[in-house]
């Protein structure tokens, strides 16, 4: 996500950019090729296990999914490539307009989740970063705590809360507010579940960028005549934007691919693109189509991230 260095940064250099004290007077570093090469070799050595890991567990499955996406389905053997022929029709099938409403719904869920996470997560991250003091680590631990149990279990817990005879209705009923509210099987329930599930992914990068922020910036803004609101908006929020960008990506992308939440908290009208893909590997019996849909979703995300970071990134990162 790091923004590439701008040309400005590279060219105009009357004084070497340096934040370190005393560094300005230092003589320019002369490169020593032999040393550099051994450093490079060391770096390769360090990256070795990572490279193997990524190749095995990221690249290989990706290649397999792409390979599947140009296959032909079968009853016994779910993906075939008869005569080595590539079957591109899965992609036209995946782009069938009948999937469009589901795709739009999925994007809407992910967007709503992201916005909700941002609205809930920002004050949380801000308070922990600014006023957490010695409790910072404890509070962060609490944010991460839900990860200690499976996402599935937590969604079941929400179902237990939201069901017709669940906790929410029981409590509301005992308060005389009626006990027949329909919470599950609604779009709201799905967004709620997603928001609950992905909030930590928003809070952590936000916290990291807010924590890093120089508290002096806020005083500087006050000093320059900026009131509290303006300071928050122009300084606190703006300087945390790298965190916001990271948080938005980390929330939006998994929310876009999620299929567990709509299945557990949603109903018949909350099918998402992710659950449609999932269905293709199960009862839909169409692995090639599911793979093609997955590839398209991935491409959509890649393009989206690229556009997003190149538009927002230049200004922020």
């Amino acid at each position: 996500m790091a923004a590439p260095p701008t040309s400005e940064e590279v060219t105009n250099g009357a004084e070497p950019p340096s934040g370190d004290e005393g560094a300005t007077g230092a003589a320019p570093v002369t490169p020593r090729p032999r040393h550099a090469r051994s450093e490079g070799a060391k770096a390769h050595g360090l990256l070795g296990p990572t490279t193997i890991w990524l190749t095995l567990f990221l690249l290989a499955p990706l290649v397999i999914v792409i390979w599947y996406s140009v296959g032909t389905r079968g009853v016994i053997n779910p993906v075939q490539h008869p005569g080595g022929k590539l079957n591109w029709s899965n992609f036209s099938r995946a782009l069938d307009p009948s999937f469009l409403p589901i795709f739009i719904r999925t994007v809407a869920y992910a967007a709503a989740t992201t916005v909700a996470s941002l609205i809930l997560g920002f004050p949380l991250a801000y308070v922990i970063a600014r006023f957490g003091g010695t409790w910072k680590n404890v509070l962060l631990g609490l944010i991460i705590l839900p990860f200690w149990t499976s996402y599935l279990v937590r969604m079941y817990a929400w179902r237990f809360i939201l069901d017709e005879n669940g906790l929410a209705n029981t409590v509301l009923g005992s308060l005389g507010l009626g006990r027949n509210h329909q919470f599950t099987n609604t779009h709201w329930a799905v967004v709620l579940g997603l928001t609950y599930g992905f909030l930590p992914f928003m809070v952590l990068p936000l916290y990291a960028s807010l924590e890093r922020m120089d508290a002096g910036l806020i005083e500087a803004a006050y000093d320059l005549g900026s009131n509290r609101f303006s300071t928050f908006w122009r300084i606190t929020f703006r300087t945390s934007l790298p965190g916001v960008v990271a948080g938005v990506l980390l929330t939006f992308i998994p929310a876009l691919g999620d299929f567990v939440t709509p299945q557990l908290l949603g109903g018949t009208r909350t099918q998402t693109f992710g659950s449609t893909i999932q269905d293709q590997f199960g009862q839909g019996q169409n692995w090639p189509l599911g793979s093609a849909m997955a590839v398209l979703l991935m491409a959509f995300i890649l393009v989206g991230v690229f556009v997003y970071t190149s538009r927002v990134g230049e200004d922020v990162l």
């Binding site: 389905r73 009948s98 099918q271 449609t276 839909g284």
Partner: peptide, 18 residues
Amino acid sequence: LGEAELKIADAWTSVKTS
């Protein structure tokens, strides 16, 4: 149903995504 099962699978996808 052999290959015909795939027809049902597709119809099922249509039901799920309708």
